[in-house]
């Protein structure tokens, strides 16, 4: 299983902070497509992604237990 984390506007649009699903074997890009279409969360495609707290590229292939965070543009400071 994989845990998906949503922040800021993505979290509000999703109506949830996290989601558990089986994403093993998919690429980040495929997962973004799935989430975007299934939850009408199209902004997810523009988000950066962190896998296990490190930024990951779109063609990263997801492994079991990976924690995937969708990172909309940040603005700390």
């Amino acid at each position: 299983m994989n845990r998906l984390l949503f922040f800021a506007e993505l979290q509000e649009q999703m109506g949830a902070e996290q989601l558990e699903l089986q994403a093993e074997g998919q690429t980040i890009e495929e997962l973004k497509g799935y989430i975007g279409d299934t939850y009408q969360l199209h902004k997810v495609k523009e988000a950066m992604v962190a896998v296990n707290e490190e930024f990951a590229v779109n063609d990263y292939q997801i492994q079991d237990h990976d924690v995937i965070a969708f990172i909309p543009p940040v603005s700390g400071g």
Binding site: F7, A8, E9, E12, E29, K32, K45, E46, A47, M48, V49, A50, F55, V57, N58, A69, I71, P72, P73, V74, S75, G76, G77
Partner: peptide, 26 residues
């Protein structure tokens, strides 16, 4: 990964100003 949400008289919005060149592709 820290975000801020502006609250105004007439609305609210999550603001991002990440210097990201290509969305989704760090």
């Amino acid at each position: 990964p820290i975000w801020k949400k502006e609250h105004w008289h007439d609305g609210e919005k999550w603001i991002g100003d990440q210097k990201e060149k290509h969305p989704g592709v760090p």
